[in-house]
Design a protein around this nucleic acid. Structure first.
Length: 818
RNA sequence: GCCGGGGUGGCGGAAUUGGUAGACGCGCCGGAUUCAAAAUCCGGUUUCUUCGGAAGUGCGAGUUCGAUUCUCGCCCUCGGCACCA
């Protein structure tokens, strides 16, 4: 063993040993409990950032700990390789996206390997490889046959110069981020996946995900947005088609004073034929942007159509208004407006002087309620509501709904905020949608035998639209049905498509005959998933949806993909998120070069618990490096010592030795809980630092001293091995072991060493700490009370006052109340 | 606006079930070693103090023998969602 810690030498050497021994290769084994630990795979952007390092270190610590628990652990890694940055880089550097991506993957794989993560690299996958994406094309065609896929027109941001759809984030001040020209709202035909058909199950299963953070479950719940209400129709004057509305407050039906429709509603178009102001208002709304934030801040505006709807109970004529706040996508695109009981309706009514009719009043009559100031949106008791007067909102919900149902005018129904998932992207670097358009046969899915539809990789990206559209060798194909000339779809899948099922593919990455095989059922569901909170809704919802699609395709048996979810906090510097644009990034590679991988791993785990944000402090890294040096030198001097090594018989130890063993085993107990249950790696590390401090405080004078210190050092090395695996690998061998530390079990604490003869108790007077006493661990309460009262300091604080009560908390404290 | 985190020394943070507030680390101060420096080691480090103590976990109340922890009302901050009828 070298006298000084040389991280770079030992890390390279240990990594080679792991590779030679195929230590982390995972194989299905029914005789052992499996543990599938997965960190969200990276986009190959070029180099790792600190967020990656933190994410993957957390996963690695959990994986290595579970391995020491005797579990059969799978920890894979791969690449979320399709996406827009590759096209941007291509434009900038004149490199094809495929080349750029594969080079980045090679570089970043090297970085991950230098960090020593215990991945089974045989299962590595990249989503841009045809062997991978062919199976999602296959699934898509199956979903098409099942009717879970459809094509419809939807409104998008269209950049007229770049000839492409832009994401909302790419529209800056209403203009394309690169072209700088105003974007248009354009209706484009796109493919959709019927995620709404799974809305109920996606919502219900959230309750079973007890291993997920409450925050993420709530976010998904809100996103799915289930509501119960009544859908019914208004007759419209003049023989026009009747108008469907949806409301969650049927109890307010008698307070309706107008009806509002979306500018895209069919009645709006009818009105526009004769009403010039309606026509120009609809035109104005078309100009507005798609970005929802813009819509929200826009002032409520509308125009009367001149048309009238008839109230389903009273027959009263209600004006129909076109309003910019009514969304065509939600419900029926039309709402019954009750200004007295809905704040939006109230604002609109106030602006256009429409009547405000209060029909619900507070249950508590003393409660203030003035609908001329604002809407009263709470539930209450009905008045001004004909036969329903006196009913509560809850009773009226049922009674009024039943009335409408009896009239056969509508029915109670459930609505979701969730909309179907638009998966078409007019972009090049993605998975081709396996569809062929034939003039006679329409949209025809590519037959299974013709899959995969490979994306041509050697292309020139110009920035104007997708290069696929102009590649006749890609586009021109015979129709699979009739054989006549047809055109291939040139849109690609949203890249969330690839990331929705990669976790399953890792289980059987070499399977060439099918999407998944029986090995997926061995490993799934993922026992521990780790990633950023930014994926709380999109990725984690799509993956749950895909899991159910694959289940219903008969590919897997479980209902949910991820049993436990850990959302790691952001890496901050100077109080804000590390990012290139802010110029406050820290390059992990430079840190590894300076300190070695173990120090970087140690610091990222030590600085804060994984689910909190991590404040990066450069000098903090020095502390972690110092600790590892200290550990190394301690083991070195221990091993160089000429002291012989005795056996340990706890009963025969002296007080100091017993105290040290007590520290060793309480630390073992605490760290097992910190790493195994709490995932607070920071406190686990702190406890080991404390233990090492105490071990080094003992002046070694005997073979038994030497043995107790040896026991402590071995415990520290084993406990830290999931966090800093390289140094622990070497120290374990230095401590005389001939087997690799990766085959060791997690150390167990010795109950006998936890027992103490004497314990220290806090003594409080009126809840304030005044003294400490030492008593026998098994002392009776009476003895403890007497000892506490005998203390001189305590007597000073009691100061002759009568003692009212003495509270003894076993093993902790005594509180004397005077 | 709604939902969810969070607010503790100079700094990152600990205190797991209501029971020693400030573990561990950084920084700083003092000392040892050194020709000197780096590195290393030892000691100190919440504030105030008449050196007896006193106060102290965003602010204000409350429950309790005892509150960083529980309840109520505020303030600040971070994150998410947002015209969803």
């Amino acid at each position: 063993m070298e006298e000084n810690y040389q991280p770079h030498e030992i890390e390279a050497e240990v990594q080679l040993r792991w590779k030679q021994s195929t230590t982390f290769k995972a194989t299905e084994d029914d005789s052992r409990e499996k543990f599938y630990c997965l960190s969200m795979f990276p986009y190959p952007s070029g180099r790792l950032h600190m967020g990656h390092v933190r994410n993957y270190t957390i996963g690695d610590v959990i994986s290595r700990y579970q391995r020491m628990q005797g579990k059969n652990v799978l920890q894979p890694m791969g690449w979320d390789a399709f996406g827009l940055p590759a096209e941007n880089a291509a434009l900038k550097n004149k490199v094809p996206p495929a080349k750029w991506t594969y080079e980045n993957i090679d570089y970043m794989r090297g970085q991950l390997q230098r960090l020593g993560f215990a991945y089974d690299w045989d299962r590595e996958l990249a989503t841009c490889a045809p062997e991978y994406y062919r199976w999602e094309q296959w699934l898509f065609t199956h979903l098409y046959e099942k009717g879970l896929v459809y094509k419809k027109k939807s409104i998008v941001n269209w950049d007229p110069v770049d000839q492409t759809v832009l994401a909302n984030e790419q529209v800056i001040d209403g203009c394309g981020w690169r072209s700088g020209v105003p974007v248009e709202r354009r209706e484009i035909s796109q493919w959709f996946l019927k995620i709404t058909q799974y809305a109920d199950e996606l919502l219900e299963c959230l309750q079973t995900l007890e291993g997920w953070p409450e925050q993420v479950r709530v976010m998904q719940q809100n996103w799915i947005g289930r509501s119960e209400g009544l859908q019914f129709s208004f007759d419209v004057e003049g023989g026009l088609p009747c108008m469907e509305v949806y409301t969650t407050r049927p109890d307010t039906l008698m307070g309706v004073s107008y009806v509002a429709i979306a500018p895209e509603h069919e009645l709006a178009a009818i009105a526009a034929e004769t009403n010039q102001s309606a026509a120009s208002f609809i035109e104005k709304c078309k100009q507005r942007k798609v970005a929802e934030a813009e819509i929200n801040t826009a002032e409520k505006e509308g125009v009367a159509t001149g048309l009238f709807a008839l109230h389903p109970i009273t027959g009263e004529k209600l004006p129909i208004w076109i309003a910019n706040f009514v969304l065509i996508e939600y419900g029926t695109g039309a709402v019954m407006s009750v200004p007295a009981h809905d704040q939006r309706d109230w604002e609109f009514a106030t602006k256009y002087q429409l009547p405000i009719r209060q029909v619900v009043f507070p249950k508590d009559e003393s409660q203030q309620c003035d609908v001329s100031q604002q809407a009263f949106t709470e539930k209450g008791v009905l008045k001004n509501s004909a036969q329903w007067d006196g009913l509560t909102s809850e009773q009226a919900f049922i009674a009024i709904s039943e009335n409408i149902e009896t009239q056969q005018r509508g029915q109670r129904s459930v609505n979701f905020r969730l909309r179907d998932w638009g998966i078409s992207r007019q972009r090049y670097w993605g998975c081709p949608i396996p569809i062929i358009y034939c003039e006679d046969c329409g949209a025809v899915p590519v037959p299974e035998s013709d899959l995969p539809v490979c994306l041509p990789e050697d292309v020139e990206v110009t920035g104007a639209g997708s290069p696929l559209a102009s590649m006749t060798e890609f586009v021109d194909v015979p129709c699979p049905k009739c054989g006549r000339p047809a055109k291939r779809e040139t849109d690609t899948f949203d890249t969330f498509f690839e990331s929705s099922w990669y976790y399953a593919r890792y289980c059987c990455v070499d399977q060439q005959e099918g999407m998944l095989d029986e090995r997926a059922n061995y490993w799934l569901p993922v026992d521990q998933y780790i990633g950023g909170i930014e994926h709380a809704v999109l990725h984690l919802l799509y993956a749950r949806f895909f899991h159910k699609l694959m289940r219903d395709e008969g590919l897997i048996t479980s209902d949910e993909p991820f049993t436990n979810l850990l959302t790691q906090g952001m890496v901050l510097k100077d109080g804000t998120k590390m990012s290139k644009s802010k110029g406050n990034t820290v390059d992990p590679e430079q840190l590894i070069e300076k300190f070695g991988a173990d120090t970087v791993r140690l610091f990222t785990m030590f600085a804060s618990p994984p689910d909190h944000s991590l404040e990066w402090v450069d000098t903090g890294v020095d502390g972690s490096a110092r600790f590892l040096k200290k550990l190394w030198r301690f083991v070195y001097s221990h091993c160089e010592s000429s002291q012989s090594l005795a056996g340990i018989n706890h009963q025969d130890l002296n007080t100091e030795q017993k105290a040290l063993r007590h520290k060793i085993h309480t630390t073992l107990k605490k760290v097992s809980d910190d790493i195994g249950r709490r995932y607070t790696f920071d406190t686990a590390i702190a406890a080991n630092m404390e233990l090492l401090n105490e071990l080094s405080a003992l002046k070694e004078q005997s073979a038994v001293d030497h043995a107790v210190i040896r026991e402590g050092l071995e415990a520290v090395v084993l406990m830290l091995s999931p966090i800093v695996p390289h140094i622990c690998f070497v120290l374990w061998e230095a401590l005389g072991h001939t087997t690799e530390i990766e085959s060791e079990s997690w150390p167990q604490y010795d109950e006998q060493a936890l027992v103490q003869e004497n314990i220290e108790l806090m003594v409080q007077v009126n809840g304030k700490l005044r003294d400490k006493i030492t008593v026998q661990a098994n002392a009776e309460d009476e003895v403890i009370k007497t000892t506490a009262l005998n203390s001189e300091k305590i007597q000073n604080h009691i100061n002759g006052k009568p003692v009212k009560k003495i509270i003894v908390v076993k093993g902790r404290l005594v509180n004397i109340v005077v």
